[in-house]
Design a binder for these strands. Structure first.
Length: 481
RNA sequence: GGCGAAGUGGCCGAGUGGUUAGGCAGAGGUCUGCAAAACCUUGUACAGCGGUUCGAAUCCGCUCUUCGCCUCCA
């Protein structure tokens, strides 16, 4: 079954075939590390995590590169303003590299909790200054860039395809409509900085052929992508807001030098909104993940994200996440029942679900459909388990294999069997198992003797202690809430 | 002003030229000592106005509204 991916460059779904058979190169724009991660990061990286997981499941060897931007971009317009990382360093009374390191660790902490697999290579911009300088040199030599007063600019007029990704190809229109004041030293308003001269007090700076300075905003991705993945890569992902100027600039820088297509498939994920308005750090409505994790299990957040398509905006609200939480618990419960129930003689056909799941994932990674298929399976499975003949050993193993693939390996929303979360250590878990077995036994005896006051007391007090009892046909079970 | 996306039942959220998305919430029922859980039943929605068509929520046009980008941003 072929995989189709929506390519932002062609604005169409296209059948995906990697450049090199069996091998997929993918680069995703990483975070600028000057603050804790928010829900927007979660949406982006959960989405691409599932992309990578699905490609791997499909048999590809995937090399996934995601940068860490630890050189500060500027806080306001094109060429003015303070470096964001420097600003944060000033606010926290420390130095830029410490800020970058601190928030890099914070980022991975959050991403790990969301079940996001780490990229194969996570290059930091500051560790690739020579590569970036080399790229600028090539651009200057080939006449695509020019140096003025210690700054180096890319000349957009020297590159015919500039703006093709975002559709902003009319340079004149850009010039007249630009909100950025024309800077005299640039040849064209849309020319963008490759290298910037550092002021005296600038803390992050390096020596270059053009004097002491620091790299421009778009350069690192081109340089590092080409270094680790080659001049033409299969997939480049990122947030929609980066289409212009960031990705258009990346294309220009890379293709001007190599003369080859930089990226074959551009993928852009949509934004997170809060009450319909884009969430952003500068808008002060961003939902910090660490805060969110204090109210919701990170896997619930992951599930919430996957219930909408990566190209659709996701509107945040507590009510919507709570709905997801209830739904996910249902899937977990169904999976638990499957693994714990005794087998019987009943049949259960997984193949149709499997097929539709693959179809959904191969249709531009349609996770909401994939999730809905898990719900349908769960419903049918529960019904089958409710029947007296139950489900046969073979059927059970087939369903389990499917859920392990779809729910655990690909979507990352079901816990693998035997791994009951991080609520208690292994040893404590064993002890609790023993205690609970005894309590359930006592309660069963009480119920048998019609001592409902005692049995209800056990149930209620356990619930207060955070343990929920469920009475099923097969007897009582318990779970930590 | 330029570039782009979207408007779906109480809420979230897919999809499609004619047949049930799915989840949450709600209602009724089965089960249960009572609950919870589970299961069954239940909702005929697609911004508005025109057009194409045997038939459109799905295609085309217009209108309205919302959102993103054009300044760093996942």
């Amino acid at each position: 079954m072929p995989l189709f991916i929506y390519n932002s460059l062609s604005r169409n779904k296209e059948q995906f075939e990697p450049l090199r058979p069996g091998f997929v190169s993918i680069y995703v724009c990483g975070p600028t590390v000057y603050g804790h991660s928010h829900l927007g990061h979660a949406k982006s990286y959960v989405s691409f995590d599932v992309v990578v997981r699905w490609l791997r499941h499909s048999g590809y060897r995937v090399k996934y590169v995601q940068n860490i931007t630890d050189v500060g971009h500027l806080t306001d317009d094109a060429d003015e303003g303070e470096d964001k990382i420097m600003k944060q360093a000033r606010l926290e009374k420390t130095d830029p590299m410490e800020i970058a390191q601190f928030y890099t660790r914070s980022f991975y902490e959050d991403m790990d909790k969301l079940g996001i697999l780490r990229p194969n290579i996570a290059p930091a911009a500051t560790a690739h200054i020579p590569e970036q300088i080399a790229l600028i040199e090539r651009l200057v030599e080939s006449g695509h860039a020019y140096a003025v007063n210690g700054n180096v600019y890319f000349s957009v007029e020297s590159f015919s395809g500039y703006g093709r990704l975002s559709g902003r190809t009319d340079l004149e229109a850009q010039q007249s409509g630009s909100r950025v004041e024309v800077r005299s030293e640039k040849r064209h308003t849309s020319d963008f900085a490759l290298w910037k001269k550092a002021e005296e007090n600038h803390l992050m700076k390096w020596r270059s052929p053009w004097g002491t300075g620091y790299p421009g905003w778009h350069l690192e991705c081109s340089a590092m992508s080409m270094k680790y993945l080659g001049e033409t890569i299969d997939i480049h992902g990122g947030g929609m807001e980066n289409k212009f100027p960031h990705h258009d600039c990346e294309i220009a820088q890379a293709e001007a030098v190599t003369g080859k297509p930089y990226v074959r498939f551009w993928m852009h994920n949509n934004m997170v909104t809060v009450n319909g308005i884009k969430m952003g750090k500068s808008l002060k409505n961003s939902v910090n993940l660490k805060d969110l994790f204090s109210s919701f299990d990170p896997i619930v957040i992951r599930f919430f994200i996957l219930q909408s398509h990566y190209r659709s905006p996701l509107d945040f609200s507590d009510i919507a996440i709570r709905a997801s939480q209830t739904g996910l618990e249902k899937l977990h419960e169904s999976y638990r029942r499957l693994t714990e129930t005794n087998t019987g003689s009943g049949m259960f056909e997984v193949e149709p679900y499997q097929h539709r799941f693959n179809e959904a994932m191969n249709d531009d990674f349609n996770s909401p459909i994939a999730v809905s298929i898990l719900f349908e399976l769960s419903k049918a499975l529960n019904a089958a388990l409710d029947r007296s003949e139950g489900v046969s050993e073979i059927a059970r193993e087939q369903v389990r294999a499917f859920l392990d693939m779809a729910g655990t390996e690909v979507l990352g929303i079901l816990q693998p069997e035997g791994k009951g979360g991080d609520k208690q250590s292994e040893g404590a878990g064993k002890t609790l198992d023993g205690v609970m077995a005894l309590l359930l036994e006592l309660r069963a005896e009480a119920r048998k003797n019609k001592d409902f006051a005692l049995s209800d007391k056990l149930r209620d007090r356990l619930l207060e202690a955070g343990i929920e009892i469920k009475d099923t046909k097969e007897g009582a079970s318990w779970s930590v809430k």
